[in-house]
């Protein structure tokens, strides 16, 4: 269970900008969050809201140029990942932080067999010899449910199905027992029955290995199924953050509220017409000076045009510990119980 005392990962004031020929794109705007030991943090948000760029900024995976991290700190224990050398960062990535990318086919190397791709980080980071690494690779493949694991070490990525490739990716990410696993849309390309297999596996691994996990997805159903806590991103910012039950039971930000209403339910009353969020997501060409959601927000008022709302708690708990939201329309704690039902 999450341990309040010592976050494994603590991100503060992260800002990432892309310098493109068409001008700047402010992809991540002052993002702060932490991750507790053994916790599963879900990250949701519209396409382009900055989920992937945020996580890639943390572990130095963005090409620079065009990406530029303007400010912030990313503490992994007492190491600031934004300050360490590229060599140190590479070690952190293999050893302390595992990463599963959005598309398994582009992140597995097609010219090396699976056995090599799993064993390589083991030999490099854990100092295992060939035989040890091989034995561990088999163990990992079995852990993620690849049948006949020992026989499949010599197979290449194209010889696996999509779901199996995804599981191989997970095996690689788990190879060095990372403290933190970052999974970016790891099940989006999968069928629901295969997805269910993987989610079950992740829940199991979390209990077995005590890993902290960041899980990015646009599928609120997946979040509902596995997350402890949820961060909602919009326009490169965290617009709402809450324990999973509170977020679904008591969404605050107009974007979160609208998003939850656009999804038809599988079991509830069948709605005659779906709710929609009119308009388009913003293109962040400058740092925000107004609410990024204002053009699509049904509650926007004059203040939203001139001031970017800060995150504020709605339950008197410190930011990040309870339920917080960045919206002028959502009142501060005093009247939270009576406001906007």
């Amino acid at each position: 269970m999450p341990d309040r005392a010592a976050p494994v990962l603590d991100v503060k004031g992260l800002k990432t900008v892309f310098r493109t020929r068409g001008g700047e794109i402010h992809a991540v705007n002052d993002v702060s969050f932490h991750l507790e030991r053994g916790e599963l943090l879900g990250v949701v948000g519209e396409s382009g809201s900055g989920k992937s760029v945020t996580m890639m900024s943390l572990i130095g995976l963005l090409p620079s140029p065009p990406a530029e991290i303007r400010s912030g700190s990313v503490m992994l224990g007492d190491l600031d990942l934004l300050k360490i050398t590229p060599e140190q960062l590479r070690n952190v990535r293999g050893d302390k932080v595992g990463f599963i990318f959005q598309d398994p086919m582009t992140s597995l190397n097609p010219v090396f067999n699976i056995g090599f791709q799993i064993a390589e980080p083991l030999r490099r980071h854990m100092g295992m010899n060939k035989a040890q690494a091989k034995a561990r690779a088999v163990e990992l493949l079995e852990l993620v449910g690849i049948p006949d694991a020992a026989k499949r070490l010599g197979d290449y990525p194209h010889q696996f199905s999509g779901g199996m490739r995804q599981r191989v990716m997970i095996a690689i990410a788990l190879a060095c027992d990372p403290d933190v696993l970052i999974a970016d849309e790891p099940t989006t390309a999968l069928d629901v029955t295969i997805q269910a297999q993987i989610l079950e596996l992740v829940k199991e691994l979390r209990v077995k290995l005590g890993m902290a996990i960041i899980w990015i997805t646009h599928d609120l159903g997946v979040i509902a199924a596995i997350a402890d806590r949820v961060m909602v991103m919009y326009g490169g910012q965290i617009v709402e953050q809450a324990p999973v039950k509170d977020l679904f039971a008591n969404p605050q930000h107009p974007y979160t509220r609208a998003l939850l209403k656009t999804i038809p339910s599988l079991t509830g009353v069948r709605e005659k017409r779906l709710q929609v969020i009119e308009g388009q997501p913003p293109i962040m060409t400058t740092a925000p000076s107004a609410c990024a959601f204002r053009a699509r927000c049904t509650h926007a008022f004059d203040r939203c045009e001139v001031e970017n709302p800060k995150r504020h708690g709605i339950d008197r708990l410190p930011l990040g510990q309870g339920h917080d939201v960045a919206c002028h329309w959502v009142a501060a704690p005093v009247s939270a119980e009576t406001a906007h039902v």
Binding site: S161, D191, Q197, A224, A225
Partner: peptide, 24 residues
């Protein structure tokens, strides 16, 4: 298939589900 779908509701999404074994 229906049991594998995750409802956007934590109490429904955490019900026991049918987990199939093996690949298509």
């Amino acid at each position: 298939l229906l049991s594998a779908v995750n409802e956007p509701d934590p109490s429904l999404a955490r019900r026991p589900r049918i987990i199939l074994k093996g690949d298509v």
